[in-house]
Simulated scan of single mutants.
Amino acid sequence: MTSATRAGAYLTIDLHAVRANYRTLAAHGGGAECGAVLKADAYGLGMAPVAAALLAEGCRTFFTAHLDEGIRLRALLPFGATIYVMHGAMPGAARDCLAHDLVPVLNDPGQIAEWRALAAETGRRLPAAIQFDTGMARMGLAGADLERLRQDPAWLDGIQPRLVMSHLACADEAQHPLNARQRGRFDAVRALFPGVPGSLANSSGVFLGPAFHHDLLRPGAALYGIHPQPGSVNPLAQAVSLAARVVQLRSIDAGDIVGYGARYVAPGPRRIATIAIGYADGWLRALSGRSYAWVDGVAAPFVGTVSMDSITLDVTGMPEARIAPGQSVDLLCEKQTVDDVAAQAGTIGYEVLTRLGSRFERRYVGGM
C-alpha cells in the first residue's frame, strides 16, 4: 500500500506557479533585483523544492527569519547565493553566521557590538545588512540609534554594509499615509549609506510603484499566490491546492446533533460526510460553520465544529458515488483560494499557508 493510498489528505504545490509569480514580481520591480523570502519553510510549502525552483528562475538573494533556517538553506544553495538572516544572530551565535556564510541583518546596538567584536577578532570587515525602524516599532534600529550613527559613523567600524533595509507596515493598503512617511524616512536613512543598496518593498510594497522599489525587492507570501493588494484582481497564481478524503458517510434526522458542543442541530434529514482533516493539520477551528469543501464545483458547507482530525460536511443531495469513503473533496482550489479561506476564518492568508501541517501527502508538480 502506497502512502498516497493511505493518506487522508493531499497537498499539491505547483512550482510552476511559484516561478511564474517570481517573474511577475520581478517585472513589477523594473530594474530592481528580486529576492525571495523563504522563512517558515517557504511559508509552509517546503524550503528545499521552492529554493531549487527559484534558483532555476534566476533568484540569487534569499531571506530567512532565523539563523537555523539560514543554515538549512545554505546547504541547499550554491556558493554565490546570498542569504540574509532577518532576525540576525541571537547573543553568542554570531560566529555561526560567519561559519555558514550567512549575512546577518543587524537590528539593534547589541547585534552591532557583537558583529564588530567578531570582525576585530578575525581581522576583517564582516558583511551585514542594517535595518532601520521607519514606523513599525518591531525590528530595526530606533531613532536614537540613527542619531548616534549620524554623530559617530565609526560606530559601524569593522562592518561592511551590504544592504540597508526597513519594513512597510501597511503596504497592503495602497492609500495608507504611513506608506509615504516610511518611504521618506527610509530615503533619509539611505543618504547616510551612499552606494549601499536599499530594500524596502515587501510583497505588497512591490505593487506600490517605483518609488518603493529601490535596489532589492523582498517578496515572501506573494511568491506563493497570496493577494498583495486586497480589493483588486490578484495578479498572482495560487501555488497550492488541497484535497481531503471522505472517511465516513451517514444519514441523520431532524434534531440530530453534529460535532462537539452541539453547535449544529439538523433542521431536517441530512446526509453528513466526515473528511480526514482538522485543526491539527492547520485547518482552523475558526472555520467551523463558515467554510466549505467543494465537490465537482458544488459547495458542501462545514457543519458542526472543526475537530482535531476531522471535519463534517453537509452533502445532502450530492451523488453518493462521488462522496463515498475514499473519494476526495477540494478545500483549496479554483473555487476557494487561500485568501478566501483566510477571510472565512477572520485571519490572513499568511496564517493559513504557514499552518499547513505535516500529515498531508505532499505532491510537487512543475519543478524544473
Rank of each mutant, 00 (worst) to 15 (best):
T312S: 15
A154D: 10
G289R: 03
R290T: 11
H227V: 10
G278N: 04
L38P: 00
V105S: 00
A48F: 03
V341N: 10
G367Q: 01
V247S: 14
A26Q: 10
R19L: 09
A7M: 06
D339P: 08
A52W: 00
Y224H: 15
G80E: 12
V247F: 15
T347G: 08
I275R: 04
Y292W: 08
F186L: 02
R138T: 08
L67Q: 00
T61C: 11
S199E: 04
A4V: 03
H66P: 03
D157S: 15
R95K: 12
R271Q: 12
L353G: 02
R290A: 15
E33F: 02
L146S: 06
V303G: 11
N179V: 00
G140C: 10
G209Q: 09
R183F: 01
M86S: 13
L98R: 10
H176P: 04
G367L: 03
R250W: 07
T316A: 06
P219F: 06
A239W: 06
G225Y: 06
F207L: 04
I159P: 09
D253V: 13
M47G: 08
L217V: 11
G46P: 01
Q175S: 12
I348R: 10
G367V: 00
G44T: 11
A239H: 07
T64D: 00
L236C: 10
A93V: 03
V206Q: 04
Y279F: 15
W155D: 14
M165K: 11
E320I: 13
A262V: 07
Q344V: 03
I83D: 02
G30P: 06
A343Y: 00
R322Y: 04
Y260T: 15
G31D: 14
I159V: 15
I257C: 08
I275F: 03
I257A: 07
S358R: 15
L332P: 05
L67R: 00
G205D: 02
A56W: 01
R363D: 10
E57L: 10
R218P: 08
T61N: 10
I159H: 06
L178I: 08
L126M: 05
F302Y: 11
I252T: 09
S203E: 13
R185H: 09
L77R: 05
A75W: 07
P153N: 01
A4Q: 13
L11S: 12
R322I: 12
T122Q: 14
Q229F: 05
R362V: 13
V258M: 07
A81R: 12
G110H: 11
F302T: 14
L102Y: 11
D281I: 07
P228H: 04
I277R: 00
Y224I: 15
G195N: 05
T134H: 12
M139A: 10
G46W: 01
L11K: 12
A345C: 02
H87W: 04
V352A: 01
T24M: 02
D215K: 03
L200F: 02
M139V: 06
H213V: 09
V85F: 00
L118I: 06
D68S: 09
G123D: 06
M136K: 11
T305M: 14
D314A: 11
C59P: 05
I323V: 15
Q238S: 13
A27K: 13
G46R: 03
W155Q: 07
M86P: 03
P230L: 05
M136A: 09
Q175D: 12
A129N: 09
